[in-house]
Design a protein around this nucleic acid. Structure first.
Lengths: 141, 141
DNA sequence: CTAATTGCAAAGCGTTTGCAGGATC
DNA sequence: GATCCTGCAAACGCTTTGCAATTAG
């Protein structure tokens, strides 16, 4: 994760965040996550490492990290926020409707096309979110 | 709205939903909406027409309509559900970050490209969500 | 008449926050 | 030592639900 870039911990330090025990644990948990955990799941993983971490701190920390651009907050439609390291390569998400699995993908054509559409609409593209939903071919059953 | 297709009311009837006064009002409100109202806003508009409608009924109705494929539920990241007639032409959403305005657009190239990406990943595309975020060019101020 | 639908108020769920104690710089 | 951070529990905003009354078919 964090291909060749600063770790979450380093980025925290770089912007002058106070490095508490809890933040260190959460930074590690979030850095080593290669999925998209919700707050409860982040809490679960952090709690295994340090039983003193509270859910409130998880919420406060992911919010701080997100505001500082360290984390991205995703929404997968179940009403819960999901978090991922903002410094990973840009990608979009493909949802396997049969299994619930989330596949990350990147396509330069899509990226370029979105730029063109934005220009056509009279805007400068600042960000985007693309989610595809599909079923395996040939179907699972 | 509902280009050449059945109205919400007609679609309700077609699937055998009981047509109550409240559902008639909500069908009308939702059909004539060309934006993306949240439940509270749907309630406000419906309440103007018929003061006896409750917020609970709005929630129950939009959920029923959504389950029956009459409405699409959208999430714009503020934690509230937004609703739009599912029978309108397919489109994606562009967010003007300066004004909060939401522009609907459709691009056949994007649609085709998504199909190709899905195939490449080994899936049959069932649905998608694309949101673009940008600022006006030249910038507003 | 029977089953579906409603309004109300209470509950549910994910998230935020006030506060007093505790840790960091 | 001043400030920032934490845990706890209470509060929050959106949504759902139990219930008894009402209404559609």
């Amino acid at each position: 994760m964090a291909k060749g870039k600063a770790t979450i911990l380093e980025r925290c330090a770089a912007i002058g965040l106070r490095m508490t025990k809890q933040r260190r644990v959460l930074a590690q948990v979030l850095e080593s996550a290669d999925d998209h955990p919700d707050a409860e799941e982040v809490y679960r993983r952090a709690h295994e490492i340090d039983g003193s971490i509270s859910l409130a701190t998880v919420y406060r920390t992911v919010k701080t990290f997100q505001e500082k651009g360290i984390l991205d907050r995703l929404e997968f439609g179940d009403g819960k926020g999901r978090y991922e390291d903002a410094k990973r390569e840009h990608h979009d998400h493909f949802f396997n409707l049969d299994t619930g699995e989330v596949i990350e993908f990147y396509d330069p054509e899509i990226e370029a096309l979105q730029e063109r559409i934005s220009k056509r609409l009279g805007f400068r593209l600042v960000g985007h979110k693309l989610e595809l939903y599909g079923v395996p071919v040939p179907p699972k059953k």
